[in-house]
Design a protein around this nucleic acid. Structure first.
Lengths: 212, 212
DNA sequence: TACGAAACCGCAATCGCTACAGTTTTGGAT
DNA sequence: ATCCAAAACTGTAGCGATTGCGGTTTCGTA
C-alpha cells in the first residue's frame, strides 16, 4: 500500500532476500493488496454500471466479499477514494518534476510538461482508462475530490518553486501561482480539447509570472 | 428569502399597496422569513459556541423551535447553507459590477474593486461579522462551501467578460480568467493580509491578460 | 366563508461513516 | 517446532445528515 509514504515501516518483514530481488512483499502484504484491489475493482465496476450515487458502500463491500469496515480501513477517504486513491504520491512527483527539470528549462515549462503526460492530457491511452477518466469528470463529487487532491499539493509545490526561484518560502506570489497551476486539471477536464486548454493556460501564466 | 432570484412569483400577494410603499411582504412571507432567520441565527450561535462539527441539525432545529424537515425545506444546501446561504445573488452582482464599471475602467479593475469592498477584504466591519468570517475561513467544510459558491459563478462571469471584451461566448482564455478570479477569495482568506493578497493576485492577472 | 396552496410537522428509512469488541492470520522470535 | 503480538478482517451497533411521505395548520383570496 503506497499510502502516506512517510510512515515508519513496522520492522519491515525481512523475507529471505533471495534471487527474486530485494523487494518481495510477503504473503501478508500480498493479501492486503489483493483485498484492496478487489475493493477498488468492485467499486469501479459498480460505478460504471449504475453511476456513483446509485451504488452503496455496502454493495461494493459485498461484491468484493469483504466487510464494510474493511472497506473503510483500506479507503478512509470514503467512496471517492475507491477510484481516485488518496493522492499520496502526487506532491512528491510534482516536486520531483520541478526539481529535476532539464537544464535551462523554466519551472513553468517543467510543470506543463508534467501535466501533458498525465491522464486527461495524454493523447494515447487504453480504452478502459479513458472511460474511467470520463466517468470521473462527469461525476461532480468525483471531480471535486480529484480537484482537492491536486489542490492539497499547493503548499509543497509552492515550497519547491520558492526554492528553485530563490525566493522566501512563504512567498505569496508563488503560492498563488501554485494554486492556479493545480487548478488546471479540473479546469481543463471540462474542455473538449484539454490539451489545448493546458497550453492556453500556461501561455497566460508565463506572461503573468515572467520570471518563473 | 432571496433564493434563486429567477423564479416566477406564485401570484404575488397583492396586499393593499398603501402608504407603506409598493412592497409589503404580507404575513405569510413575513412568518416564513422569520423562521428562516430563526434557523440561521440558531445555527450561527451554536456553531460559534461549539464548532461546526459539534452541532447537529437536530439541535439547530431544536433551538429555532422548528422541525428538522423545515430546516431542510429552508436550506436544501444543508448545514453549511445555514450560514453561507445559497449564493443566489453573487453571480448577478458580479456581472453588474463588470457591466456597470466606470468609463475607461478595465474589467479587471472593476473586479478588484468589487472584491475590495467585500467580506474579508473590507477593512472596517463590525465585530460580530468579522468573527463570523474568521469562523468560516477556519472551518474547512465552510471554506470549501464558500469557495464553491464563488466558483459556481464561473460561467456567468466568463459570459459577461466575453461580452465586454467582444470575444466569443465560449472563449477558453476568459473562462480560465474567470476561474482564477473566483479562486481569489478562498486563496486570500488564508493570508494574514487578504487585502495585499488581492492586490498581488490582480497584478499578476493583469500581466497575464493584458487586454482585459 | 370556503377552498387550495404553502409552510410546517413528525416519523420512518436510507446511506455514509465510525466505534467497538472479538476472531483469524501471519511474521518473526524463541 | 512453538508461541506471541501485531495486523487484517469481521459483524453489530449507532450516530448524524438527508429525503420521502402523509397529515395538519395557516394564509391569501375568490
Amino acid at each position: 500500500m503506497a499510502e502516506t509514504a512517510a510512515k515508519k515501516q513496522p520492522a519491515a518483514p525481512k523475507e529471505a532476500t533471495g534471487p527474486t530481488g530485494p523487494k518481495e512483499p510477503g504473503r501478508r502484504e500480498r493479501k492486503k493488496a489483493a483485498t484492496r484491489k478487489a475493493l477498488s475493482d468492485a467499486a469501479l465496476e459498480l460505478f460504471l454500471e449504475r453511476g456513483f450515487d446509485k451504488v452503496t458502500v455496502a454493495q461494493i463491500a459485498e461484491r468484493a466479499d469483504t466487510a464494510v469496515t474493511t472497506l473503510f480501513a483500506h479507503f478512509p477517504g470514503g467512496k471517492e477514494a475507491l477510484i481516485l486513491g488518496d493522492g499520496s504520491e502526487r506532491a512528491a512527483s510534482l516536486a520531483a518534476a520541478v526539481r529535476e527539470r532539464g537544464a535551462g528549462e523554466s519551472v513553468l515549462d517543467a510543470l506543463e510538461e508534467f501535466f501533458a503526460g498525465r491522464g486527461i492530457f495524454s493523447e494515447d491511452q487504453d480504452h478502459a482508462y479513458r472511460k474511467q477518466v470520463e466517468f470521473v469528470t462527469s461525476t461532480p463529487k468525483l471531480r471535486a475530490y480529484a480537484r482537492q487532491l491536486w489542490v492539497s499539493c499547493e503548499e509543497p509545490l509552492a515550497k519547491v518553486m520558492a526554492e528553485e526561484a530563490g525566493r522566501p518560502e512563504g512567498d505569496l506570489s508563488l503560492r498563488v501561482l501554485a494554486r492556479f497551476v493545480l487548478e488546471i486539471p479540473d479546469l481543463a477536464s471540462l474542455e473538449p480539447h484539454p490539451r489545448r486548454a493546458l497550453e492556453t493556460v500556461f501561455e497566460h501564466l508565463r506572461r503573468g509570472w515572467p520570471d518563473v
